[in-house]
Amino acid sequence: MKFIVEDAGAYLQIKVTEARIDAAIATPFKDKLREIVVKHRKPVHLDMANVTFMDSSGLGAMIAVRKSLPDNLAIVLCAMTPNVERVFRLTRMDRVFDIRPDAIQKEANE
C-alpha cells in the first residue's frame, strides 16, 4: 500500500495510488492511512483521482479511518472518479464526508 504524502502547511495532501480499494486491500489501506494521519496530526485532503473502483469493503475502510480521527482532524475527499463518487452517493456517505470535485493540486493553487 503506497500513498504520496506532502505537507501543505495547514493540511496534509495524500494521493491514493491504488486503482481499486476493495476487499483485497481494504485493511492495509485503512491501517496505512490511519498511521499517516495520526503521525502528522493534521487535517487531510485525500486525492482519489486514481481510484476507479471501490466496493463496500473500501467504503468501510474509509468510514473506519474517519471515525478513528479526532474531531479536529478533518478528511476531505478530492477528485473522485464518477464510479467511486456513485458509491458514496448511493450509500449517502456523501453527506458524511466532505467531497470536493477538484484535485488537490488545483485546490492548492487557488
Rank of each mutant, 00 (worst) to 15 (best):
T52N: 10
G60Y: 13
Q105K: 11
V16M: 03
N83I: 07
T17A: 13
E35V: 03
M48Q: 04
R86V: 05
I99D: 07
E85H: 11
A26F: 10
A24E: 11
L90M: 12
R41W: 11
D55P: 01
A24C: 10
S68C: 02
P28E: 08
F29H: 01
L33S: 04
Q105M: 01
I25P: 00
A26I: 09
R86M: 11
M62W: 00
T81Y: 06
K32S: 05
I63M: 13
S68R: 09
V38A: 07
R66P: 00
A61V: 03
L33I: 01
L59A: 01
F88Q: 08
G58W: 06
V44N: 02
Q105G: 15
L73V: 15
V38F: 09
L12E: 08
I25Q: 02
P43K: 02
D22L: 04
R86L: 14
F53D: 14
M1N: 02
K30Y: 04
L59I: 01
M62Y: 02
R95S: 12
A64Y: 01
S57C: 03
S56L: 11
T52P: 01
F97S: 07
N109S: 15
I99P: 07
D98L: 15
C78Y: 05
D31P: 03
K39T: 15
L77Q: 03
R92A: 12
K2M: 09
H40M: 09
A8C: 08
V5I: 15
A24G: 08
F97C: 07
L77T: 04
L73E: 05
L77M: 11
L90D: 10
L69F: 12
V87L: 08
A23C: 12
V84S: 04
E85D: 11
G60T: 15
V84A: 02
L90W: 03
R34K: 11
C78E: 07
A24I: 08
D7V: 02
R95I: 09
A74K: 13
I104L: 14
H40F: 07
D71W: 08
D102S: 12
Q105R: 05
E6W: 00
G58S: 00
R66T: 15
G60D: 08
I63L: 15
E18W: 06
V51F: 06
L12R: 10
R100Q: 10
H45E: 12
H45W: 15
D55E: 00
E6D: 13
V51M: 01
N83W: 10
A49N: 12
I25W: 00
A26G: 03
H40S: 05
P70R: 14
T81K: 11
F88A: 09
D47R: 01
S56E: 07
R66N: 03
E107T: 13
Q105C: 05
M48G: 13
V96M: 12
P101E: 12
Q105I: 13
V44G: 03
A79P: 02
A10K: 08
A64P: 13
T17P: 01
Q13L: 02
R86G: 04
E35S: 12
V51R: 03
D31S: 14
A10G: 12
R20W: 05
M1R: 03
V5W: 07
D31N: 14
G58F: 08
M93Y: 13
G58V: 04
N50Y: 03
R100C: 02
I99T: 07
V84T: 08
D55F: 00
R89Y: 05
A64H: 08
Y11F: 14
A103F: 00
M62Q: 00
I36A: 03
K32H: 09
D102C: 02
L90G: 13
